[in-house]
């Protein structure tokens, strides 16, 4: 029960016109229940590939992934994805977008009033009750991303997979959503795997930071355990020496140990 998601000896090879391209090799990772993991690395290091593998959107060419004792063979409601570009359906209102997910997971067991209540609760959790009946094009980018999170949370997934969820947002909105996400995680005890290339975001949010080497044939370079007490406050942490050390460790991995490879590749 302790190891909730297990990634064992996973490799991913894509067949391209120029022959096989190895994106990932020998990836081993065990994630505990309730843990917050950040995947960080330079672009093209296969972070998103690893996330898609855990989501079941792609199947690995080598190795095996296990979630809650079962092999991951495809997407499942226990592993929900928050996409980088929110991926809301533009012809549905915010409410309908979330309802679609709720109906899928709980529709067989629960009646409509209960499903509607679940949808409203999920939207309330991200503070969007007032925008329920709006269409995605009528709300801001940050609000869209919150609807995407609400949609994922509404399904009560065991694992929440987030692919650079705040990457496209301005710094202020991003900070607010990070705070909201921390609160939601504390409240729900969700297991989260988040792809990011924001060092501050990784240190602030995670229990462990998984740092990936540069691609092709990327793998896990280092894993940094972030032992900062929760709840975390970004203002207090800014001057906390441990926070500064963690931050420096990630930066040194990215810009000293992995920078050289990037130059070679370029």
């Amino acid at each position: 029960m302790k190891k909730f998601v297990q990634v064992e000896d996973v490799g991913m090879r894509f067949d391209t016109k120029k022959g096989p391209f190895v994106a990932l090799r020998d990836v081993d990772l065990a994630i505990e229940k309730g843990e917050f993991i950040a995947l960080i690395g330079h672009s093209g290091c296969g972070k998103s590939t690893l996330l898609n593998l855990i989501a079941g959107l792609t199947v690995p060419t080598d190795g095996v992934l296990i979630c809650d004792g079962r092999e991951i063979a495809g997407p499942g409601p226990e592993r929900e994805v928050v996409f980088q570009n929110h991926s809301l359906l533009p012809w549905l209102t915010c409410f309908e977008n979330v309802y679609l997910a709720v109906e899928r997971v709980f529709g067989a067991k629960e009646g409509k009033p209960k499903l509607k209540l679940r949808t409203q609760e999920a939207l309330a959790l991200v503070g969007l009750t007032h925008a329920e009946q709006k269409y995605p094009h009528e709300i801001s980018g940050g609000m869209k991303q919150r609807v995407g999170i609400a949609r994922a949370l509404s399904m009560q997934p065991k694992v929440l997979l987030m692919d650079e969820p705040f990457g496209a947002l301005d710094a202020l909105t991003r900070a607010r959503l990070q705070d909201e996400l921390m609160k939601i995680c504390d409240a729900t005890g969700a297991t989260v795997v988040m792809v990011t290339h924001d060092v501050d975001e990784a240190v602030l949010l995670s229990d462990r930071i998984v740092m990936m080497t540069n691609g092709p044939a990327a793998t896990i370079g280092e894993i940094l355990k972030v032992e900062l007490p929760r709840p975390r406050n970004r203002l207090e942490l800014a001057h906390d020496p441990r926070y500064i050390d963690y931050r420096a460790a990630v930066l040194s991995f990215l810009y000293e140990k992995q920078a050289h490879h990037e130059k070679q590749a370029a």
Binding site: A55, L57, G74, P75, G76, P77, E80, V81, F83, N85, S87, L89, W91, L92, L100, A101, R104, M155
Partner: peptide
């Protein structure tokens, strides 16, 4: 992206057609 949403939400073929493909 939309088809990935369908896959992640594990929607039925009918829902995929009415909620994603047709619109």
């Amino acid at each position: 992206d939309y088809m990935n949403v369908a896959r992640v939400l594990n929607l039925s073929e009918w829902k995929i057609f009415t909620k994603i493909l047709f619109p």
